[in-house]
């Protein structure tokens, strides 16, 4: 299994009230899966994504990804884990505005001891893979929304991560572009074998996954409760 959670819970304190964002979520996800997480607003989708990617700590329960326990890892261990194992694709693209498309893709490579030439070589290869070979020296503001998201995808895969976490990756795109980006992600999943966990509101986007997880009030929907083994 690539990803395992056991009784994962997350509570937030809002003034005097304790909010259960996640309640006893237990999952097992195999490597190479394309999982979509759906649910109404406030159901805990993003919280689950944050916890699984090591961006927040759970209140209780276990998270094991690629045999690494994340629940008690230190901040630097989590940074290192994300650097080596995780890619992100977000709704707002989160590109660095003063870096060109190529330089944005090179940002994760700066954490690895590659030479400048090697960095450029790898980043070029990936940016051509997402079809932006002729736009690599453009700044994000000079690119369309779809192109920016493709740069973000290139940045997410450039370190060859085990898993990509995507949060509403098509939320800012029109339907045609959404389909294009989702197809792209599907290809990455199939061709590169990278596991994808995608949070989405869109039923159309959810159909791209080979497993759909539905969250409601921080809990897995009844038919998916307990351990889910995917294939």
């Amino acid at each position: 299994m690539l990803l395992i959670t056991n009784n994962l819970s997350k509570q937030y304190k809002r003034r005097d009230t304790i909010v259960d964002a996640l309640k006893d979520v237990s999952l097992e996800i195999e490597e190479g899966s394309f999982v979509t997480i759906t649910g109404p607003s406030g159901s805990g989708k993003t919280t689950l994504l944050l916890a699984l990617s090591g961006l927040i700590r759970p209140t209780s329960g276990q998270i094991i990804i690629n045999n690494k326990h994340l629940e008690n890892a230190s901040d630097s261990e989590l940074s290192n884990f994300r650097k080596e194992n995780v890619g992100f694709i977000l709704q707002s693209f989160s590109l660095i505005p003063y870096l060109s498309a190529l330089q944005n893709v090179m940002v994760p490579l700066a954490l690895i001891n590659h030479s400048k030439q090697k960095q450029i070589e790898i980043a070029r290869e990936v940016i051509e893979l997402v079809g932006l070979g002729d736009r690599m020296n453009h700044l994000p503001r000079e690119l369309s929304a779809g192109q920016q998201q493709r740069v973000a995808i290139a940045r997410a895969v450039v370190n060859k991560p085990k898993i990509i976490f995507a949060d509403e990756p098509t939320g800012n795109l029109d339907p045609d572009l959404s389909t294009e980006i989702l197809s792209f992600m599907k290809n990455i999943n199939k061709d590169m074998g990278i596991t994808i966990l995608m949070v989405t509101h869109s039923p159309v986007a959810a159909d791209f996954g080979n497993l759909k997880i539905k969250l409601s009030n921080g809990e897995l929907s009844s038919n998916l409760k307990h351990h889910i083994v995917l294939n």
């Binding site: 630097s76 650097k83 707002s92 660095i96």
Partner: peptide, 16 residues
């Protein structure tokens, strides 16, 4: 803030 958040998300430690 967003840019720093992005870098942290990608795996940049606090020291960087």
């Amino acid at each position: 803030k967003k840019e720093i958040g992005t870098l942290r998300m990608i795996g940049y430690p606090k020291s960087k």
